[in-house]
Every structure is written in structure tokens, then in C-alpha cells.
Computed example of a mutant assay.
Amino acid sequence: MSQNQIPVIVNGATGKMGREIVKAVAKEPDLILMGAIARNPEVQGKDAGEIAGLSEPLEVPITNQLEPMLGYVAGERQMLPGVMVDVTHPDVVYDNVRSAIAYGIRPVVGTTGLSPEQLRDLGDFAEKASTGCLVIPNFSIGMVLLQQAAVAASKYFDHVEIIELHHNQKADAPSGTAVQTAQMLAEMGKTYNQQQVEETEKIAGARGGLAEEGIRIHSIRLPGLIAHQEVIFGAPGQIYTLRHDTSDRTCYMPGVILAIRQVQKLKSLVYGLEKIL
């Protein structure tokens, strides 16, 4: 440990994203893994590096005790402020993030499913505590570029729908990325998809979920998928499709590492990877 290293807690350390984050943090000389949190009783006490697939142990045992770990890292005054990367579950992410802020630990949140009300509450709490917090629906640089291209296209197209595709272990739908994309399009100040006919759904939900400003989002959950999104614009005589596909979760790691470093500079909650690029 040194005064120039950022101590990191990975919450959800044994999940698919968590294991990749453990490996990514271990490679960076300015970061040090201080805690690995997981609920699974079968991994308690095992080395986080070995579970992640590293060739050598990190000497960081997996524990299910988040708050004691937050307190421990907060007490390491000889180091930079700690960061908690949360990749857990929508049911617990709000409490995790609030606890981290209370201990002065900076949250980097990759877990989706926070409601607008929860985001506002966490934003108020972070600002009062002068503690940085990053909520990132998608850590992929490619997805940020897709969203920017979609915003640019929205100036010229009045009809758009979003399709997001994920593995069948994802608990929330639609994805946080799809919701964020719809929000960005809605911020352009126009209403999309003016109804041409009176539609009737023969099966409820066939037309997808209705997001802001008339934008439809369709969610697909299948084994074999990781994370994918299409934004489809339509106009007379043409279709313009933007698509982003992930084939390996390593694509998220540059964004995760950037977020860990950048959250140190913040004093409030910031939403979206594009805000720190």
C-alpha cells in the first residue's frame, strides 16, 4: 500500500462482471484491491484473485460483510479515499450506495435498476456529504459513441424505437442503458412516433414499453447474449440503424478503471460515462 494508491472494494466480486473488475484492478499500479464482497456462502474466505482466475492469489479473502469493509477502508488514512465498485443486484444497490457514501467511500455503480426517486435521493445525500458518486448504466466507450450518434440522428428523424438484448440472468428490464438512451433522445425537445393508426395489442406488451416522448423500448433475454442494443430510426424510404454488440466483458474495463480514478475528483453524483470522458 502507498499514499498514491486508490483502495478499491468490489461489491459483487464473484459475478461475471465482478471477476473481470478484480482482474482489471489488480493490473493497475495506482489501484489496490482492499475488499471483495459476495453473498455466495460457497466462496466465503476464498481468495478473490483465485476466484477471478488470476495465476497468483491477491491475498484478499471474499467476505459478505460490506459495512465492516467500508469502515476498514475509510480508516486507512494513509491512502487516497476509497472507492466501491458495485455490480450487485437492483434489490440491494440503493442501500449499498447509501452505506458507502455514509462512510466517505466513493461509489462507482454499474448495477442498473435505480429508480429516478432513488437517484435523486442518492444525489442529495452525496452532495450533502461532498462525496463523489458515479452511476454508469454502461461502461463501454462504444455505447457512448452509439448514444452520441443517436442524438445527432434525432435531429433528422421523427420515428425511433430501441431494442436491447441481454443474457437471461439480467434481473431488470429494460436495461439502464436503453432507458438512458431514451432519456437522451427525449432531451432533444421533440415527441417521436406520432401515431398513424389506432394500434391494438393482441398480446399485452407486444409493442414494447413506452418510455419518454413516445419512444418504445423492447427487451430480449436469451442465453448466449451478453449486452447488445439497437436504435432504429425510420423515415419515408429509409431506415437508419445503430447497433452496439459486446462479445466479452473486458470491453467494459477501460470505462471501469477510468470511473474509479475520476470519482476521486467529484463532490456529487454524476450519471453517465459520457460525463467523465
Rank of each mutant, 00 (worst) to 15 (best):
K128E: 15
A129Q: 15
S130V: 03
S130E: 15
T131F: 05
T131M: 04
G132R: 08
G132E: 07
L134H: 06
L134K: 04
L134D: 05
L134S: 01
V135C: 03
V135E: 07
I136W: 07
I136Y: 11
P137W: 13
P137G: 06
P137K: 12
N138M: 10
N138E: 08
F139R: 02
F139A: 08
F139L: 03
F139M: 05
S140K: 04
S140Q: 08
S140G: 12
I141A: 13
G142Q: 10
V144S: 06
L146C: 12
L146I: 15
L146T: 10
L146F: 11
Q147F: 09
Q148C: 01
Q148K: 13
A149L: 13
A149M: 13
A150K: 12
V151Y: 14
A152L: 14
A153D: 12
S154Q: 08
K155E: 15
Y156F: 14
F157G: 06
F157I: 01
F157V: 03
D158H: 14
D158M: 05
H159A: 13
H159L: 02
H159G: 05
V160Q: 10
E161G: 09
I162E: 10
I162L: 10
L165A: 14
L165F: 07
L165R: 15
H166F: 09
H166K: 11
H167L: 07
H167Q: 08
N168S: 14
N168F: 09
Q169F: 11
Q169D: 06
K170V: 13
D172G: 02
S175Q: 07
S175H: 07
S175N: 07
T177R: 08
T177C: 08
A178N: 08
A178I: 04
Q180V: 00
Q180P: 00
Q180S: 04
T181G: 01
T181F: 10
A182S: 13
A182L: 00
Q183C: 03
L185P: 02
L185R: 07
E187L: 05
M188V: 12
K190H: 08
K190V: 03
K190F: 02
T191W: 10
N193D: 03
Q194N: 01
Q194T: 02
Q195I: 04
Q195P: 00
Q196C: 04
E198K: 14
E198W: 02
E199A: 14
E201V: 09
K202P: 00
K202M: 08
I203D: 01
A204I: 10
A204G: 04
A204C: 05
A204D: 13
G205D: 09
G205T: 07
G205S: 06
G205M: 04
A206K: 09
A206T: 08
R207P: 01
R207H: 04
R207D: 00
G208W: 03
G209Y: 07
G209F: 05
L210Q: 05
A211S: 13
E212V: 01
E212T: 03
E212R: 14
E213P: 00
G214W: 03
G214S: 02
I215R: 04
I215H: 05
R216W: 04
I217S: 10
I220G: 13
R221P: 07
R221H: 15
